[in-house]
C-alpha cells in the first residue's frame, strides 16, 4: 500500500507540487496501478537476464571533433528569465 506520505515523498523527488486533492487522487490511482503491477510477481524471473536495450547494439562512438555551437541568441531564445548571457534562476537556498 502506498500512503499519502509516500506520494508526498515521490512528488518531492520528482519535483511536482501537488494539491491535497491531487494527493488523494494519486494515492488511490497509484495503488490501483501498483496492484495491477503485482501480477508480475507471479513470474519466476530468477534466471532471466533483464532487457535494457532491445537491439544488440554496442560500441556506438563518435569522433572527438568540435562542431557548431548554437549562436548565443538561439541558445538563450527560449529562456524564461535571462540576465545578460546567463540563464537566471531563483536563489538556491
Amino acid at each position: 500500500m502506498i500512503t499519502e506520505k509516500d506520494v508526498d515523498h515521490v512528488a518531492l523527488l520528482a519535483r511536482l507540487e501537488i494539491t491535497s486533492k491531487e494527493r488523494e487522487m494519486y494515492t488511490n490511482q497509484l495503488n490501483d496501478i501498483l496492484e495491477y503491477f503485482q501480477s508480475l510477481q507471479r513470474l519466476d524471473t530468477e534466471n532471466v537476464q533483464p532487457t535494457a536495450y532491445v537491439l544488440p547494439l554496442k560500441n556506438v562512438y563518435r569522433e572527438d571533433q568540435v562542431g557548431d555551437h548554437l549562436p548565443l541568441e538561439e541558445a538563450l531564445a527560449n529562456c524564461p528569465d535571462r540576465e545578460e548571457n546567463y540563464f537566471k534562476v531563483p536563489k538556491i537556498v
Binding site: R62, A75, L76
Partner: peptide, 30 residues
C-alpha cells in the same frame, strides 16, 4: 560536439545536447 575550451562567453559553448533541449540525444566521444 561542443568545445571543452575553458572560459569563453557564458553559454557560447553549447548545443542542443549539452543544453538539455527536448529531443537531443547523446553519442559517446571515443
Amino acid at each position: 560536439h561542443s568545445t571543452t575550451a575553458f572560459g569563453g562567453e557564458p553559454n557560447a559553448h553549447v548545443c542542443p545536447g549539452c543544453l538539455g533541449l527536448p529531443g537531443a540525444l547523446p553519442v559517446i566521444n571515443k
